[in-house]
Design a protein around this nucleic acid. Structure first.
Lengths: 419, 419
DNA sequence: ACTATATGTTTGCGAACGCAACAATTGGCA
DNA sequence: TGCCAATTGTTGCGTTCGCAAACATATAGT
């Protein structure tokens, strides 16, 4: 995707639309795409030899050498000593992401703003949680984010050391929003939990930081994170379902790329109709997934107050109370209806469960999968794998950083050459 | 997509997987992609000037001249006299699809096999319906299809004349199957109406005809046809919902391309849960869309027997009976639940209704749209347009032919040069 | 008839990749 | 220890392809 340029400041807060000219391939796109392919491999694998790059890209040895050389010149990857291997033949140098390349991740929530720094390659370098005493307005969230960014930047600079090799280059900011984000302009159209409606949060943060900034729905970013570094590594078609305090979010990966729909709202599974019962959720809809499957009902069955995700997980998995088991069973039943719908509509290879949905599955292992196989089309559920998320609490930092990296990964020539 | 070759006979019945080497762009892919872009424009527009091609592809004049020249040499497009226009400047020659390029479309149904011939550009040249006295086995359907192919081939040859310009080049066969098709190998995994399970219908027909043959679900093909030549022209994200005698099918277009999911089963909306009522459909599922919204219930409310789509449409739109109105209203209500789910999950720009679903909408105009706007997420339904299909009875011929054309459109160099 | 405008045509150039030959490095084996 | 096979890096050359620029052509307007 080419971006709508902002020539003066270099601040870009959106990945704009595709120009009509993108229909055709220009010859300069070849280089760009090949640099992108190599950089993406280095990013997703962490480290691999030039020979591996040659095999996986299908390009010629000499071409790969030139591409890696250019990426080294641009300060995006580093070449290291060959690994001591027991293979015959000349050893191949190892290509890794340059450790100076860092993306920032921001996740505004009702009671805190969390900011992280993530290295190219997906390593979380630093996380800072700014606690808040009340749900922030966009302006307050921007201030908290700016403070968090300052903090993690210092932390990363310390980590990298202050020598000539201690340089840190921040490629941009990614925001994981618990709500609906219009990807094109980064506008938060609706974040019910935060009480935000049509807030240009991305633009505010971009102006405040002067960095290229993008935003997307948190579950969409979680899906992408699990695809690249978690349970869905190498999976081309997956659906990620996350159970959080504010409801159930969904993110879809199709053909190895995030599926966003027309405006970025795709994957909203929370309001799927799963029950003829007459309960209504706050927004007034009846029989929706979020009415039947939610964290509050689990907490009330457990008789506990507000607890964090790990405590809830432990409580659910450890509980032997028949009442709790019954609630879990009912929630899994309703969840299976929604998952079946999703499977029938998206025909994914894998469904990844995050948040308390993973806890539900862990509490009664196999039940969800059995129900989905009963209810979804047999041919669609046949090759389906249902997994729990692997990235834990850092999933949103990684996912949001991925959003910030995506520009660079798609076009490695856009970052200026290292001085 | 590159194909798994069948070197001996040249018969290919599947668009195989993408080789790992496709990660990277080779320089020969540039030419291929540009030829593809030009040919696709000629195909979808029917006719446009070289100057328009230059503008829309973003390529250089000289490049477009060379590309068009190569396509002419390959016999894929023809250049004609410039149109008399009132524009200043040198007139630009008009580029059209070569009329000798033809694809065949096959649609096996319970009581007939329909075969069509479609020109590059989407014009239906001939249709032949082979009536059957009982639901065909795959072998019987192949025989009927072969007979139909022979018939329409003769008809097309007559149309084209027998002179030196009367040549007909058939690029392949596309099959629209009322059921679930594994796109990769063209296996009909389940066609309940026909009683087919795991039938290699595509391969059978490919061997019988010696032509490159592909198959897909009928609603998926309908979606693509409506996108290119019907209600969804220029729409990048749309969902097509078709109401047929055998149930409700769905097809999804995302990012301007068919969305098939992992194996080609995506878009199966018929079993979506829409009702807490206790009716079950033949396959045993309860409360699914197909249980609540179906053609049989409409016919029984109308008191009529088996009628064709046009007669049903007229009857529904013309009926003033309160009972019929009530049935229509109830079906629209349930349909709105499913459409809302689809809108929330795919965030399309347009929903296109075909078959008796279009008739339902025509009978009580605006009702469905109103309900969907009430039930779907406001931000997702905001930019949504609900339209009735435009292509009528030829939709499956066009859609199936599109499947046959897709190989050629993606790689115009694969068809041998004209002698 | 003349001018402005738009487009086709031709030519030369540069970018980028593949190929092939050669160099470098390692493991295996006598 | 020395030689060979295998694998990969390096270098120079050729090909393909698109772009830019200069020139040619055709039309509308004055």
């Amino acid at each position: 995707m080419s971006d709508s340029q902002e020539p003066a400041s270099g601040v870009r807060w959106t990945g704009g639309g595709r120009a009509p000219a993108d229909r055709a391939a220009r010859s300069d796109r070849v280089r760009r795409d090949n640099l992108s392919a190599v950089l993406e491999l280095a990013h997703s694998r962490g480290a691999l030899s030039r020979a591996q790059l040659t095999r996986e890209t299908g390009l010629n040895r000499s071409t790969v050498a030139a591409l890696v050389g250019e990426l080294v010149e641009r300060g995006l990857v580093v070449e290291g000593e060959p690994e001591a291997s027991r293979e015959v033949g000349r050893p191949s140098p190892i290509v890794r992401p340059d450790p100076s390349i860092v993306a920032l991740a921001v996740n505004p929530e009702i009671d805190a703003v969390t900011v992280g720094a993530v290295g190219l390659g997906g390593q979380v370098l630093a996380v800072r949680r700014i606690d808040l005493d009340r749900s922030p307005t966009p302006v307050e969230a921007v201030e908290a984010a700016a403070q968090g960014i300052a903090d993690v930047s210092v932390r990363v600079a310390e980590l990298r050391g202050s020598g000539p090799d201690g340089e840190v280059r921040i490629v941009g900011v990614g925001i994981a929003v618990p709500g609906l984000v219009e990807t094109r302009h980064g506008i938060v159209r609706l974040a019910p939990h935060l009480g935000w409606v049509d807030e240009p949060f991305t633009e505010l943060l971009a102006r405040r930081t002067g960095l290229s900034t993008h935003a997307a729905n948190d579950a969409s970013l979680g899906a992408n994170a699990e695809r690249i570094f978690g349970a869905g590594r190498g999976v081309e078609h997956l659906v990620y379902l996350n159970g959080g305090a504010s409801g159930i979010g969904g993110g879809v990966i199709a053909g190895g790329r995030p599926f966003r729909g027309r405006s970025g709202f795709a994957g909203e599974i929370g309001h799927t109709f799963v029950s003829g019962a007459d309960r209504a959720d706050p927004s007034g809809s009846r029989g929706s997934l979020e009415v039947e499957v939610n964290r509050a009902a689990l907490l009330s069955a457990l008789g506990s107050g507000a607890v964090d995700a790990d405590a809830l997980d432990a409580a659910l998995v450890g509980s032997t109370s028949p009442d709790v088991q019954a609630v879990i069973r009912r929630q899994l039943d309703h969840l299976s209806t929604a998952v079946s719908t999703v499977v029938n509509l998206f025909n994914p290879q894998m469904v990844v469960l995050g948040g308390f949905l993973a806890s539900l599955d862990r509490a009664q292992p196999g039940r969800l999968e059995t129900l989905v196989r009963e209810r979804a089309l047999p041919v669609s559920s046949e090759g389906l794998s249902i997994q729990r998320a692997q990235l834990g609490s850092s999933i949103l930092m990684i996912g949001a950083a991925e959003l910030a990296f995506s520009e660079l990964l798609a076009d490695p020539t856009h970052l200026p050459l290292r001085p």
